[in-house]
């Protein structure tokens, strides 16, 4: 027993290493596998405050670009309203919408932390549980399309699992065709402007500059913009091919995002939970 003790204290560096290193690995695995319950991340109060204050300067510098994108979106919305008013002049048709409320409602939030240089990137925004956010809600940027989905919420902050993350798969389709596949980022290409679409059936002929939108199987509203095809066929298997896409979204200058609340998300989830789990 005494010899054992001497042995341990002689090589204490190694034993401490084993203890602390396995603790680190344990944290990593836990973080990868589940939603995190420990808030040692940027939804934490202290960490969030640091980023919040730091962002004031950055916000000011990017004011011009943000203004432009908001103005562009305003113009687009105005056109939509005009189009709607035109339809309304047919007064003898009274439309009684039984749903009464739109399926999707949008909530704007400011980005207070963003990263694009890691393998797995996260974004932190300044809205949280108090504003009605919940895990899994999709996030888009004004006029430019898909950003990611909410991973964690605290009272006034939330983290978004960005599109630039190894676990983000988004079901997308090619506009005006029925081809669809799943989009991933970062397989041998860590350029934040490019993503790849896998599992597009070979018989669909894609062209350069074809527009990519979200498909009806994703949790984003159907037709949310994603990007344009920049390389139609970087690899080809027997049945499926992989396509490279240039994203509309510039993740390096993200300032404001919209969180989308789907009125039927919970209903759909509950309904699908009743299906027998046979996969």
């Amino acid at each position: 027993m005494r010899n054992l003790w001497i042995f341990i204290s002689r090589y204490n560096a190694f034993f401490f290493f084993i203890i602390f290193f396995s603790l680190g690995i344990f944290l990593t695995i836990k973080n990868n596998a589940y939603q995190r319950s420990v808030t040692v991340n940027s939804t934490n109060k202290v960490v969030g405050d640091v980023y919040n204050n730091l962002n004031v300067l950055k916000k000011y510098i990017n004011l011009g670009t943000v203004n432009d994108s908001l103005a562009a979106e305003n113009a687009k919305l105005k056109t939509t309203i005009l189009a709607m008013q035109h339809v309304d002049t047919a007064k003898d048709v009274l439309v009684k919408d039984t749903a009464g409320v739109p399926q999707y409602t949008y909530l704007s939030a400011r980005v207070i932390k963003n990263s694009i240089t890691n393998r797995n990137n996260f974004i932190t925004i300044n809205k949280g549980k108090a504003d009605g956010l919940a895990e899994g809600m999709p996030v888009i940027s004004p006029g430019r399309g898909v950003v990611g989905s909410i991973k964690d919420v605290s009272e006034h902050l939330a983290t978004i699992q960005s599109l630039l993350h190894k676990n983000t798969y988004i079901s997308v389709s090619v506009k005006n065709t029925k081809a669809f596949g799943s989009m991933v980022w970062g397989e041998n290409n860590f350029d934040y402007r490019k993503a790849q679409i896998k599992e597009i059936p070979n018989h669909f002929k894609l062209k350069l500059k074809d527009t990519i939108i979200t498909s009806m199987y994703s949790k984003y509203p159907l037709g949310t913009l994603v990007g344009v095809v920049s390389n139609p066929g970087i690899s080809q298997g027997e049945n499926f091919k992989t396509v490279e896409v240039t994203l509309f979204n510039d993740f390096s200058s993200l300032q404001y995002v919209y969180v989308i609340k789907n009125k039927f998300a919970k209903e759909q989830e509950e309904l699908e939970a009743k299906l027998p789990n046979e996969q």
Partner: peptide, 15 residues
Amino acid sequence: DAFYDTLGVHTAACV
């Protein structure tokens, strides 16, 4: 890790 949102990764590396 708290600032990089990668719980455990930097910790293990530093150890």
